[in-house]
Computed example of a mutant assay.
Amino acid sequence: MKTDNTVWHDQQVTKQQRAELKKQKPCLLWYTGLSGSGKSTVANAVDALLFERTCHSYLLDGDNVRHGLNGDLGFSDEARVENIRRISEVAKLFLDAGVIVSTAFISPFASDRAMAKAKLEQGEFIEVFIDTPIEVCEQRDPKGLYKKARAGEIKDFTGIDSTYDVPESPQIHVKTAEQSIEACAQQIVNYLIERQFISS
């Protein structure tokens, strides 16, 4: 629970100075899509391309974060909201350090994605919609989750018995069923170059 006895401490080294040192503009690539859509795979490919360009980036993967920081959360609607709130705050700290951050979460609720966006400065939040038909996601089913959800072994599974709010106007729209992972990753890097988050 938040206390009234904490005051934000301004640091001597500014966000702008850290970004200038890294020769990039910090931003948050917020990957959203159904389970099995390819969020983590594409995000990893983008992170690798950024690394090759000597960019300073970090990927916060949904499963990895739930192993530690959010290990106490389940998958109810309330827990999903708290999951996104926490990761939004962590991502904001990374941006303050001048880093390009990627988050790969289903993040099914538009209101939660809007909350994450509202925490950042104008233009820093980049919604990346990994748009893959649920039929394709079920065929892939890399973790066997759809099979378990269809069998009733998993409750509140997005796309089956829990809602997914499709992004209405994402900054980047990626279709992994129609393009290779390499092409999808390059599409995102091209966006960053065109908007001058990174140099060409």
Rank of each mutant, 00 (worst) to 15 (best):
E138S: 10
V189Y: 04
K39A: 01
T54A: 13
R195C: 06
Q179T: 12
A110G: 08
Q122R: 03
R113Y: 04
S180M: 09
F129N: 01
D47Q: 14
H173R: 13
I126F: 06
L145H: 09
K2L: 10
S37V: 05
K155I: 08
A177T: 05
K175N: 13
K119Q: 12
G152H: 04
L59W: 03
E124W: 01
D156S: 08
R150I: 05
A118G: 04
V7N: 08
K155A: 11
V101G: 00
K15F: 02
N5S: 11
D61S: 03
L28P: 02
N44Y: 02
C137S: 13
V65E: 07
K175R: 14
V46F: 01
P26N: 11
E194T: 14
K92D: 03
L59N: 10
V189C: 14
E124R: 10
D10S: 15
E178G: 09
Q187Y: 12
A118P: 01
E168Q: 15
A110L: 11
E182M: 10
G152L: 07
G74T: 07
Q171F: 05
H173E: 13
K22Q: 15
I172D: 06
E194S: 09
L120G: 02
S180I: 10
R80D: 04
G33I: 01
S102G: 14
P170E: 14
A118C: 10
Q16C: 04
G36H: 00
N64Q: 13
F109C: 06
T6D: 10
S200F: 12
K148I: 01
Q24D: 05
T158N: 01
I154E: 00
N5A: 07
Q16R: 09
Q24E: 05
S199R: 14
N190S: 08
F94M: 15
E20K: 14
G159A: 07
F105Q: 07
C55A: 15
